[in-house]
Each structure stands twice: as structure tokens, then as C-alpha cells.
Design a protein around this nucleic acid. Structure first.
Lengths: 217, 217, 217, 217
DNA sequence: TATGAATGAGAGTTCATTCAT
DNA sequence: CATGAATGAACTCTCATTCAT
């Protein structure tokens, strides 16, 4: 045995611990997603989440300060992942319309694969952030990033004259709302078809509106 | 004095009782709206609602079977009123686009005057209807009526060629979602301006889309 | 108009009022019997008793101080009636055995016609008299009178040598207990036959015991 | 140290947990017995029972589903123990009369040592089993077993000619009722003497009746 | 670290009782 | 007197959180 191997041992040790810790954290978040999706925030009990992750009740508290923190961090994780998914599909030198198309598609595809999370999101959203804004700041920030991305694309399109005048944020909100409601309906109807088949509809409506182009306006 | 006056007395009596009962019911609903808006369904306690209406806890139960019923009936009342407000602003022989304009305006004006209710609606919506669909049926029906109205207007516009092809319900959902998100943002930003100033934006976006008409497409 | 008629008027008035008052009191007691029998003391609500007697809730309180008083007075009435029924069937100059026979028969016949009351009695008896003996004193007294009657008959039989030695009260308790349990069983089995068909059995057992007389003892 | 000791360790572990759990359950049952005896089912609060067992309110619910279950399981435990006590005193090859003697003595001795439970039993018995028969089935079964035991002894005595003709169950009911009432009286009188001193009286009355044997019948 | 039993604050709900009409 | 709406104390039960093992 030499100093090096000991050192290596130390060096290894931490990361493994860390990795294990991350793994357990992820296990619990996954269980929380299942249970929150199935029952909603209030009806879900920590006990049930723990059991669903194959841990004991107390263990959850070693990874999350309290129930609301668990909920918030689940949101952060999921919305962060949505952001990542979008960035991944965004080929940088695209024109704004093309980019928007990519964003919408990525967004729809993301919820296609995250139905349980969307059902949490649609049902209770960030409804708990009442007064206690503080703890939600991270999630709100992430959502704002997403809106900002949409808004910036629109704004850049406005500069090139592709988009009409108007407050970019309002356009972004409206687009986001359209997707939201359509996703909600898809979820509730238990439609087996993929959500992303609606991307085209959303984009067309957002870009062209509902009126017939045949009509001279 | 004749027999008729006695009869009149009897005739009057019931209505007064009924009127008073309705009044108290309304008092409690108003208090419930305040408290639910401020705290959300779960954090709101019957005790607090009762106090806010200046009644004792038990009194609430003379008017509503239980907490969820109170919540549901508040929804029914409010969504019914939204429906009424819309119908009132809808001058029958209007063309679909005109009618849609009226609906959107009425919808926005309604929430302008019902901020507290919207904050309940936006936050928790009908998220409690999990499994217990039965009790929510009335509310769901009312919401469907509203969506149907939008869908029918679009459909009739499609027949006259004003609107593009597409499933009317999807258009309706999208329009509803746009309004939803814009209202949500308005509420959260504590914007002092009237919500209805956004009606024009919503309609233009829905009808014409976001792309510049200048561009030949 | 003369003094006499006025006087008569006064004389009549009171009694009628009194009679009406007694009538209403009786109505309520009858309703209480029905409801207590069906649901037990705690599950029975004053509201339901009042409705069952076709009065308003508050009216009950004009005739009975509170719920327990109502219960107690129902007991008093019923046990007093049992006493009366027994005395009625008791032809004074009978020998003790004969008299006992009459008492048992009257007792069984009484509950034959008072099933609802017995079901109250069997179920909860005087279980509420815990600590608050005071209010139950009257009922206890009446029950003691009944036991005393049995005890005195036995005692007098002992003096004439018909009955064996032993504390008369113990004999009385045992006899009462036998009838009690047999009545309880009859009630629960929903036996359609009359309870009084068991009188013979009870008497024979009490007088002769269960052992075969054939056996020399 | 060998693998076996480790194994033993594991083997022990479970039983200790189990034993502790049983102990706590028993603590709570004992407290429930005290409180139910003192106040009756309805007036007893879970809070008070918990405090009396030195636990917190919620703890009771870890061991018993709800208040009625606690009550029922107390009954089951106690009546099962009565059965056990009786069987223990029953030397198999005894003749029916002898056996009956043993049963009565065991029964009386049991309540001598279980005054609090008897006061629950005498006061409210199984009066809560109204409609909700299901949950009481176990207790009813145990009580029926006890009655059956008495009935079978009598029946076998009838076959050997020691007992008179008659429905064995009626004899059993009567005997049970005699003991019941005598126990009730003993409890209420706060008699310091042992209940079992009454066994002789009960048996003699049940076997021989109250009439004097001197008399030729 | 992991466990899960224990905690106890807190909520919904009921209903005996009161009292203005 | 009769009414029945209002009251609010009291109770059962849940569950997030803690902590001894």
C-alpha cells in the first residue's frame, strides 16, 4: 500500500458517495412524480412517495427539506429538462420562424414523454406559490427563461419584418397558453395519439391565425 | 282588511325567507371566494371562511354539505355568470368573426371584474376532480358549453369560408388557452390596467396570426 | 255573563292547556321512543325526534330540559307503565307462587307490546347514569320497586316454606336477569312469536330449576 | 464468531419488534378499558385514552383503525380471555353438572378480576352493532361460542336424564342472564366481597330452582 | 445513513342548545 | 308558545415532520 493508492481511494470515495446520493435523490424524485401525478400534491403523502421509491419515510427528509421543497425541486428538474430538450433541438443559425417551429416541436415532444409531469403541471401548476414566492424563485426563473426564449425569437422576427408589431412577451404568453390548453385536453381525453401531432396545428394557428388566407384582408 | 290581504301575507312570507337564505348563501360564497383566492383550496379553512362571512363555523354547513361542495358551487355560480355575461354581449345576428370578438371581450371583461375568482380558477382550476368526477359534472358541463360556443362560431365561420379548415374544438381550445395565459400573467403582474385592453391583441393574434401580413406567403 | 261562567271559563282553561301540554309531551316521548329505538341514544338527534313528532327542534326544549332528561323521562314513563301493568294483573289475595306467575306473565306481555322500548332498554339500559346518578334517581327507584315486588313475593313464600332460604333480592335479580336475556334474544332473533310464550319456561326454570325432577336429590 | 450468530441475530430481531408492538397495543387496550369503563364509549375520547396510555393521539391510530375498531378489539380480547379462562377450568371428563359448576365458577371468577371490563359490557354491551354487524361478527361469534358451550353441556345432561326437557339454548340464555344481572348488581353496589361467592347461589338456583325441595311437588 | 414509530397540531364535521322572530 | 337558523364546543382522524435506534 502506498500513499497514492490511499489518495486514489479518497479521490474515488467522494464521487461515489455523491453519485449514490444523486441516484437516491433521483429515485425519490421519480417516485414523487408518480405519486403527485396520480393524486395531486395534497393527497400524496410522503409515506407513499417513500414506499414507492422503496425507502423509508425518514429517508426522504435526508434529501429534501420538506414536502413543498420536494415538489419544487421536482418542478425545477423537469422544467430544466424541458429547457435542455429545447436547446438541443435548436440549431443555432435558423431563422426565427424555423427556430419557433423547432421550439414548439421540442416542447410538444417533451410532454409526450412526460405525461405524468404534465398532469401535475396542468392540475396544480405552481399554485402553491402564494406568498412564499421565495422558494419558487428558481422555478419561476426557469419558466421565465422559456418565455424569454420565445419572446426573443419573436422579437428578432419582428426586426426582420417577419412578425407583426406587438409586445413580444404577449405573443410568447399566447403561444404558451395555446400549447398548454391543447396539451391539457390531450391529457384528459386520454388520446392515444402523440401530442406532437398537434405541433403543426399550433404553429399554423400561431403564425397564420385562424382566418382563411383565401380571403383578401 | 279582507281575506286577500291575509293571502298576500302568506304569499310574501315564503319569498322573504327564501330571499334571506339566498342572501346568506351568497355571503358565504363571497367569503369563500376571498379566502380560496388568498390561500387555495386546501389552506383555506371553513372556520376562516365562516369568520370572513361573519358567521359561525357550523353555519356554513347549513348552506353547503361540505367543503368541496362549497368549492364546486362557487365554481358553478361563477362560470354560470361568465356564460350569462357572454350571452348578454352576444347580439344574435352577428357574423362569426363579430360574434367571436364579442365573446372574447365579454370574457376578458368578466375576469376584469372577477380577479379573485380567476386566481382560484388559474391556480387550482378543477384539479380536485380526481376520481370524484360525479360532483364536478355540473361545472365541467358549463365549461364545455363555453368551449362549444367558441367551437360553433368557428365552425359556422368555416362554412362561410371565413375560417380555415381544422377541428373547431382545437381552435376553441387554443383561443381559450391564449386568454388563460394572458389573464394569468396580468393577474400575477398586478398590472393596474384593465384586462380587457388585451382583447384586441388576443383577437388579432387568433384571427390573423403573428406573422406580418406584408409578407407574401 | 255572570261570575259563574267566568269562573267556569277559568276552571276549564287551565285543564285544557294542561291537557294539550300533556298531549304534546306524549307526542314527543313517542317520537323519542321510535328514534332512540332505531338509532340508539347518541345517534338519535333532537332534530330528528322533533321532526318525527312533527314539531320544530326548539319545541322539544319547551317540554324537556335537555336530551338526557328526555331519555330519562321516557324511561320513567315506560317503567312506570310496566309497574302499572304488573299491578293490574296482580290479584291481591294470591299465594306467592301464583303472584309470581302473574308478575312474570305481565312483564313478558308488557315487552311484547313494547318492543321498541325494550330495544332501547336492552341496548343502552341506564348506561348513561355514570356519576350523574342524581337525575336517574327516579328511574332507579322505579326499577328498585319492581325488584322489591319480586323480592317481597319470594320472601313471603319463604315464610310459608314454599321457597328455599336465601337472600330474596338475589332471587329477584336472577329472575329479572333470566327474563332480560330471554327477551334480548327474542328481540334480536326477530322471532315473530309472542314473547309471552316464554313465560312458562321462565317460571318453570325459576321455580323448579333445570334438573330433572325424576332424579332423587 | 460465526455466521450462525449473525443469523441468530436476525432471527431475534423480528420477534423483539413484534413483542414491542404487542406490548404497546396491550398498553392502549388497557387504557381504553379504563376510560371506556369510566365514561362509556361515546364520552370517552381517543385523546383521553392515548394520554391514559402515555401516548399521543395519533399513536392510537397506528394500532387501531378507528375508535370503534379499538372498542371491538377490546371486546374480542376480553371475551376470548373469558373463553380461555373457562376452558382452563374445565376438566374434560366431568359430568355435565360438574362441568356447569366449573363454567359458572370460572365465569364469575373472571369478572371478579375484570370489573372494569364488565362495567363496559354491562353498560353498553354490543349496543353499537347497529347495522354495521360486519365488524362485530368476531365478537358475536365468541359470545355464541360461550352460549353454545353452556347449551351443549345442558343438552348432554338431557341425554343422560339429569336435565329436564327443553330447548338447551333457552336454558343457556337464562343462566347467562342470571349471572349477568347478579354481576351487575354486585358491580353497582360496590360490594367488596368477591363476585365468585355468588357462584354457589347461581348454580343452586339454576339447577334446583327456587322452590323448597321439602315441598312435595 | 437509513429507518419507521411516535408525535401533535390542525382540519372537517356534527349536533345539543339557544334565542330572535 | 312555537319555530328553526345560528352557534361553537368538541370530537375523530390525518399526516408532515422528528428522532432514537
Amino acid at each position: 500500500m502506498n500513499g497514492r493508492s490511499f489518495s486514489e481511494h479518497r479521490v474515488r470515495r467522494r464521487p461515489r458517495r455523491q453519485r449514490e446520493r444523486q441516484q437516491r435523490r433521483a429515485d425519490i424524485l421519480a417516485a414523487a412524480e408518480r405519486v403527485f401525478a396520480a393524486k395531486g400534491f395534497h393527497a400524496a403523502s410522503i409515506e407513499e412517495i417513500a414506499r414507492s421509491a422503496d425507502y423509508a419515510t425518514g429517508t426522504v427528509y435526508l434529501y429534501f427539506k420538506d414536502k413543498e421543497t420536494l415538489y419544487i425541486e421536482l418542478f425545477e428538474e423537469k422544467i430544466r429538462a424541458l429547457g435542455a430538450a429545447i436547446r438541443q433541438h435548436l440549431t443555432p443559425p435558423a431563422d426565427p420562424v424555423q427556430a419557433l417551429r423547432q421550439v414548439v416541436r421540442a416542447r410538444m415532444a417533451y410532454f409526450d414523454q412526460n405525461r405524468p409531469f404534465f398532469s401535475i403541471y396542468a392540475r396544480e401548476g405552481m399554485n402553491l406559490f402564494e406568498g412564499r414566492d421565495e422558494r419558487w424563485r428558481g422555478v419561476v426563473k426557469l419558466y421565465e427563461n422559456y418565455l424569454d426564449l420565445l419572446a426573443r425569437l419573436i422579437q428578432s422576427g419582428q426586426r426582420t419584418g417577419v412578425f407583426r408589431r406587438g409586445r413580444p412577451r404577449q405573443f410568447a404568453l399566447a403561444l404558451s397558453g395555446m400549447m398548454m390548453q391543447i396539451t391539457r385536453d390531450w391529457l384528459q381525453s386520454r388520446d392515444r395519439s402523440a401530442l406532437r401531432t398537434r405541433s403543426r396545428f399550433v404553429l399554423d394557428l400561431f403564425l397564420l391565425g385562424s382566418q382563411s388566407p383565401a380571403r383578401s384582408r
